[in-house]
Design a protein around this nucleic acid. Structure first.
Length: 448
RNA sequence: GCGCCCUUCGUCUAUCGGUUAGGACCCCAGAUUUUCAAUCUGGUAAGAGGGGUUCGACUCCCCUAGGGCGUGCCA
């Protein structure tokens, strides 16, 4: 059977590292399946909240996924499926599993507080279940509108979780979930189940914050006469301070990371490897990550999201990037000075955009840093007529012999004069790229 | 409060009753017959605390401490 997974973000904000990790794990699991084409990755736009959902965010989600290489095979829109949800509602009502309740949020809050203060679990007491037809009429005559709750069977719901092993949720200790709000809006729970059934989702993979939901949702799957999919609940991410990160990470949106110059492959490799036994090094491609994906490799405790790891990943991705991949982007930066140039600078980059600095040093104007002009003049006099990749070694030997300078005292002043920078890529290839004319001027202390 | 999950080098982790407790990152050192970086090689470094069970426990059980999550007319 073909594996079918889904990723269902709400277009109420940009994708951030927390929810993209869930999406990525789904993608990796699906695409890592054996068989001709791997599993199917379904993108489901969860825009049932019409107030907060926007087209801009929807586009943003697609942009981010595409950029990361997480292509989708199917795309669905929940806002287009309200009739389907209504049908399911009718079936649940007919089965006696959905009942109207009339408490206001204020009343419910108060009741919860009272329960808590008495040391009781804050579970809905099902008062509405005891309402007679006349009671309901009376309440509606007062102008109250019902919200609808799903009547839990109150049993131990069990499943074998792909990530956590055997799981059990005791639904007797849970409140009957509200499926339809007073204003008629569907809450996440029902559309999610109905869609999983209709879209033939075989594996629901999500964060462990959904474990309790799964207990409830399995009951809904059953109430709708459907077989539950497999479930996998992965651990959440915490920040490097160890505090939970999933719900307060506006600053870690994929868009921000992109703007800060992080490579998609670095982001995806990092996210796929946090909390796993795989080494923290970049994969060659997202497909490679998929091939290596296994739930068994993931730890059961929260993984730390560490920016320093991401930065190192990013540098490593750049260091290994071939010219064919880099070339179009170098052109965009106006920094395409050929393959030799790219190979010379890539191992020194931490962000791709840094390439433009070296393009300027090589092809544009640099202002030399001069401390000892006499030394530089001596060196300039020794510079060969023609420069190539071997020149640097021979030249520095000659300068050393002539001046007695060595080590850092020899190389650092030359680097600073020739590039105007304290640090950078290997000077051998760089010198040849800079060329004799510019090199001489810079050694003379003139910007060139 | 209650429920579920978790706790091994600084960090991410392997181990599924007997191991010199392994790997990766960071860090340190050496090499690249003299530079920062990159690269290569080597090295330092760990089982939260307390009780059990067992010939033997990181591994199984209990308690404590700590962390994550849940307990919504959010998703």
């Amino acid at each position: 059977m073909t594996v079918r997974v889904r990723f269902a973000p709400s277009p109420t904000g940009r994708l951030h590292v927390g929810n993209i990790r869930t999406g990525l794990i789904n993608w990796l699991f699906a695409k890592g399946q054996h068989g001709e084409e791997g599993g199917v990755f379904v993108l489901r736009i969860d825009d049932t909240d019409l107030e907060r959902s926007t087209k801009e965010y929807e586009t943003g989600i697609e942009t981010d996924l595409t950029w990361l290489g997480m292509t989708w095979d199917e795309r669905h829109q929940q806002s287009a499926r309200f009739p389907v949800y209504t049908q399911a509602v009718e079936r649940l009502k007919a089965a006696g599993r959905l009942y109207p309740a009339y408490e206001t949020q204020v009343e419910l809050d108060l009741r919860r507080k009272v329960q808590l203060s008495q040391g009781l679990p804050p579970v809905y007491d099902r008062a509405a279940l005891k309402l007679s037809e006349a009671d309901r009429k009376a309440l509606e005559a007062e102008g109250r509108k019902p919200h609808w709750r799903f009547r839990l069977e109150g049993k131990r719901v069990k499943w074998n979780d792909l990530a956590r092993g055997p799981c059990e949720v005791d639904t007797t200790s849970l409140s009957d979930p509200v499926l339809i709000r007073e204003d008629g809006a569907f809450l996440y729970t029902l559309p999610s189940v109905v869609d999983d059934i209709d879209m033939a989702i075989t594996h629901v993979i999500r964060g462990e914050d959904h474990v309790t939901n799964t207990g409830v949702q399995i009951e809904i799957f059953e109430a709708l006469g459907a077989k539950s999919p497999e479930f996998a609940h992965t651990t959440l991410l915490v920040g490097s301070d160890g505090a939970g990160l999933s719900k307060r990470l506006g600053s870690l949106s994929i868009m921000d990371l992109r703007e800060q110059g992080y490579e998609p492959l670095a982001i995806v490799s990092h996210l796929a490897r946090i909390g796993t036994s795989d080494p923290m090094e970049p994969a060659g491609s997202i497909e490679e990550l998929a091939a290596a994906f296994q739930f068994g490799k993931m730890a059961r405790h929260p993984g730390r999201y560490d920016f320093e790891d991401l930065a190192r990943m990013n540098a490593a991705v750049l260091h290994a990037m071939d010219y064919a991949s880099a070339q179009p982007r170098l052109q965009n930066l106006g920094a395409d000075l050929g393959e030799t140039f790219w190979l010379a600078i890539r191992s020194n980059l931490s962000r791709f955009a840094d390439a433009s600095l070296w393009a300027r040093v090589v092809g544009g104007t640099a202002t030399p840093i001069v401390e000892d002009q006499a030394f530089l003049s001596q060196a300039a006099a020794l510079l060969p007529q023609t420069l190539d990749g071997e020149t640097w070694h021979a030249w520095t030997e000659a300068v050393k012999a002539a001046t007695g300078a060595k080590g850092k005292g020899l190389y650092a002043p030359l680097r600073r004069a020739l590039t105007g920078e304290e640090r950078g890529p290997e000077m051998g290839p760089l010198l040849a790229l800079i060329g004799r004319e510019k090199a001489l001027k810079r050694l003379a202390g003139e910007p060139a």
